[in-house]
Design a protein around this nucleic acid. Structure first.
Lengths: 220, 220
DNA sequence: CAGAAAGCTGTATATATTTACAGCACTGCT
DNA sequence: AGCAGTGCTGTAAATATATACAGCTTTCTG
């Protein structure tokens, strides 16, 4: 047989579902500081049996993206392989996002202006990228034009938090407030009115949470 | 004595033993990817009772360096406080200066509140320490109460630069302006008048130059 | 010296967690 | 058709973990 395929390492063609699982594990570690249990996985994905999670984990383990430790609770480790196939985990190099082109994902290659080496542990929860803030709408929160906002990716926000939100393809930084069917996005500057988003009519996505600010004074 | 109620948790003078425990937890996370259990802690330190670990954890929690989650196995989270109070392994450790006691050198041991690991190359020129800014006198420059000012030590300043100045034993952050025999230290807030220093009568020392600002949003 | 706080031992127990066994439905191959 | 792989449900243990209660040293301090 001339299958000249040296399939020694058949690589890891993760299924879409498996990618979701892996992704969740990574996020869980990011947010909580430790991996999820089988039942936490199950309740997140709606499995009625912890065994669904178990078999996914085994599959991920045999594909080499995670490592399971027998007998230890939360004994899940992401391998370097996993880090490669996931966006923005645990990296020391935080991408610096400049202007976000309308409609493109924040972390799209075209939006990455630079990469900054920075101890990700400085902020908590861990930031996934730095967003260059444009305009003075958050002036009174001490966030000025050109400042870098450290952003932790998560779709959940609580009232009072500073969020990176996307309204109909436009990305903006505001203070979040939830009110029934509406969401209020407050600027921190009397010159700007709060943005009222009707969730029934407009698409609103929380791209992430501001976890810190970084400003570099211009050299002169 | 009205101590400012800035810190929601109690003080934080970790005992040497507690530091050891904290250190081990941090290492365990680094190596294994998840925190240790009570019994893993116990077997590492030779405790014969898991309760020894338990009470240490509770102490660390009440001192604010870790956060325990009830009912979750390995539910231990390092707070940013912990990251600062742990021995920095690789990056440059910038001392974090809190309140500067009148008359003491800025970098005197007594003024060092913490150490932050952070890529010093982030700012230019290279910062020597981080100074926690008190008060709102620089508000309109986007420097708020509690912000960390990255400071490069140098006795020379040019007009318009943000400096850390010492006037007769008092340390302050202001914008620098030189005018003949006088120096003007401008606040960036209309509520504060500029400070006019007569160099012939008063001692003025430039402690350093602000090279950047770092703000960490409070965990919630 | 009393009392508090740090550090432990020892015992228990309710839960949290892992993990095996047995199946069912669906898909893409061969 | 048959077989392997993916994705699940359901049930059941074994065992890993968290965590309360009771008490015993030291050390330090008012």
């Amino acid at each position: 047989m001339n299958r000249s395929k040296r399939d020694k390492t058949v690589e890891k063609p993760l299924t879409p579902r498996q990618r979701e699982i892996l992704s969740f594990i990574s996020e869980h570690i990011d947010i909580n500081g430790f991996p999820p249990t089988r039942s936490e996985l199950s309740s997140h994905f709606g499995f009625r049996s912890p065994n669904a999670a178990e078999s996914h984990l085994k599959a991920l383990d045999s594909k080499g993206v995670i490592r399971l430790e027998r007998g230890r609770s939360r004994g899940i480790t992401l391998t370097t392989l996993a880090q490669a196939s996931l966006p923005g985990t645990q990296r020391t190099n935080l991408p610096l996002i400049g202007r976000v082109a309308a409609g493109s994902p924040v972390l799209a290659q075209e939006n990455i202006e630079d990469e900054l080496r920075l101890d990700a542990g400085l902020f908590h929860p861990r930031p996934h990228y730095l967003l260059r803030v444009e305009g003075m709408s958050m002036r009174d929160a001490g966030i000025l034009d050109g400042d870098l906002l450290a952003v932790h990716r998560t779709p959940e926000a609580r009232d009072g938090q500073i969020v990176v939100a996307r309204i109909e393809d436009e990305v903006t930084v505001k203070r979040f407030e939830h009110a029934g069917d509406h969401v209020l996005l407050h600027a921190e500057n009397p010159d700007y009115a709060p943005i009222k988003v009707d969730l029934r009519r407009q698409a609103l996505a929380i791209e992430g949470l501001g976890v810190g600010v970084l400003r570099r004074f211009a050299e002169s």
